[in-house]
Structure formats: structure tokens, C-alpha cells
């Protein structure tokens, strides 16, 4: 261990501001990218499901129409 105590470690020899800013921004950016990428999958699948349901509905309606027409 390079530092004598935990508070020394946080202080970074008086340069805490720079070191922690740099690490903070880097990991925030990368974390945000990860979260956005992971969430995108769910929203994508939901969109696709919605579109599929919509198409199924259309198909059903067409079928109903046909059967109705054949009845009359």
C-alpha cells in the first residue's frame, strides 16, 4: 500500500480534485453507456412485440371480414 491511511488515499497528496474527477467522469460515462445499451434491448423487444401484436390484429380483422362476407 502506497498511502499511510485511508484519508491520505482520499487526499491524493493534495490532488484529490483532479484524480477523483478524472476517475469519476470516466466511470460515469462508461456506466451510462452500459446502462443505455442494456436498456435498449428491452425497449427494442417491446417495440417489436408491439408491432407483431399490431400485425396479428390486422390479420385477424382481415380474416373476420372474410368469414363475415362468406356468411352473408
Amino acid at each position: 500500500m502506497h498511502f499511510d491511511s485511508f484519508s491520505d488515499f482520499i487526499a491524493m497528496g493534495g490532488h484529490a480534485f483532479y484524480v477523483w474527477w478524472a476517475y469519476g467522469i470516466t466511470f460515469t460515462l462508461l456506466f451510462t453507456l452500459t446502462v443505455v445499451s442494456v436498456r435498449r434491448k428491452k425497449s427494442l423487444l417491446k417495440e417489436i412485440a408491439k408491432r407483431a401484436q399490431h400485425e396479428d390484429k390486422l390479420k385477424q380483422m382481415r380474416k373476420d371480414k372474410k368469414t363475415n362476407e362468406s356468411k352473408t
Binding site: 427494442l44 423487444l45 417491446k46 417495440e47 417489436i48 412485440a49 408491439k50 407483431a52 401484436q53
Partner: peptide, 22 residues
């Protein structure tokens, strides 16, 4: 994976995956 899903949205296997989520 996201890109593959988006580009193959019409394929049955993607539809199945989507149906599970839905």
C-alpha cells in the same frame, strides 16, 4: 445483440423473444 435484433425484427426467432418480453 441490439443491432441484430433491430435488423431482424421480422424474423420468427426475434418475434418469439419479443413475445416473451411482452
Amino acid at each position: 445483440k441490439n443491432e441484430v435484433l433491430a435488423r431482424n425484427a421480422m424474423r420468427p426467432w426475434v418475434r418469439e423473444l419479443a413475445a416473451k418480453v411482452g
